[in-house]
């Protein structure tokens, strides 16, 4: 198969970028999208042109490193998959394919299609954990957790932290990412002691990092590789409201 690629090239954060045209020639239909880019890159290297920089690691859909917007869709067409799980047989021979990086003020471009998603790490650092000093844990079965609650927590915990939600959101909002972590930990009994401070600190850090707010378009849910439900965002809103009330009452003494 052959394709015409329009690829965003940008030397670094401080220089302007632009689309460049490339031909992807003789691509096997069985190749993955990233393998198609590998082939293009090998061709570029042979012609002494700098290869296209893009992130990927596990290439099996779980590490969350790959991050392309293909034909205007974060992780490309198809439901519940990362870019690395996108295969060329999905495209038409001769098709023009647009490849852009994840775009958000909070995800500055590092080079070409690579963005800096450390903002997500900072949100987790602000409270996305349960403090449990190593060695101090009680027996694992001393805290029974109903299967329904445990399963729902697992659904939220499945987030791979890829950032597609913020990339797809017209407001570059990170709400689905934050909601997933808040719900995962907030549903579990172990997560209750820090529930108020966790949601407060994570949301305010999210705001400070320059992500937008949620206006309920649900673009995030549509592109999420882990199929995190946007209803978790509602839970986040509620938790934040309750935390704010608690905080207000505490301040009044």
């Amino acid at each position: 198969m052959n394709f015409k690629l329009k690829v965003w090239r940008q030397q670094n954060e401080n220089t302007a970028g632009q689309f460049r045209d490339y031909e992807a020639i003789n691509i096997p239909a069985e190749a993955s999208f990233l393998e198609m880019l590998d082939i293009v890159n090998e061709g570029l290297i042979a012609r002494q042109e700098e290869p296209i920089a893009f992130d990927s690691d596990c290439r099996e859909g779980i590490c969350g490193m790959c991050s392309l917007v293909v034909n205007g869709i974060a992780h490309g067409p198809g439901k519940a998959k990362t870019t690395c799980q996108l295969y060329m047989r999905r495209f038409q021979d001769g098709e023009t394919i647009w490849i852009e990086p994840f775009r958000a003020a909070a995800f500055p471009i590092v080079k070409d299609l690579i963005v800096d998603r450390s903002a997500f790490d900072r949100i987790i650092q602000a409270g996305g954990y349960i403090t449990a000093r190593t060695g101090s844990a009680p027996d694992a079965n001393s805290i029974p957790i109903g299967k329904t609650v445990a399963d729902l927590a697992m659904e939220a915990a499945a987030c791979i932290g890829c950032g597609a939600c913020a990339a797809a959101c017209p407001n570059s909002s990170a709400m689905l990412f934050v909601a997933a972590k808040i719900s995962h930990l907030g549903l579990l009994p172990q997560g209750q002691p820090e529930r108020t401070s966790r949601v407060r600190n994570m949301v305010r850090t999210m705001d400070a990092l320059g992500f937008g707010s949620c206006t309920n378009h649900y673009e995030c849910e549509a592109v999420c590789p882990a199929e995190i439900s946007a209803t978790f965002i509602s839970r986040l809103n509620r938790d934040y409201a309750v935390a704010s009330i608690r905080e207000g009452l505490a301040a009044r003494g």
Partner: peptide
């Protein structure tokens, strides 16, 4: 402000 650079080619999925 959260999306200073727009996508050249965006394809809505759910909105």
């Amino acid at each position: 402000a959260a999306r200073p650079q727009k996508y050249a080619h965006y394809n809505y999925q759910a909105a």
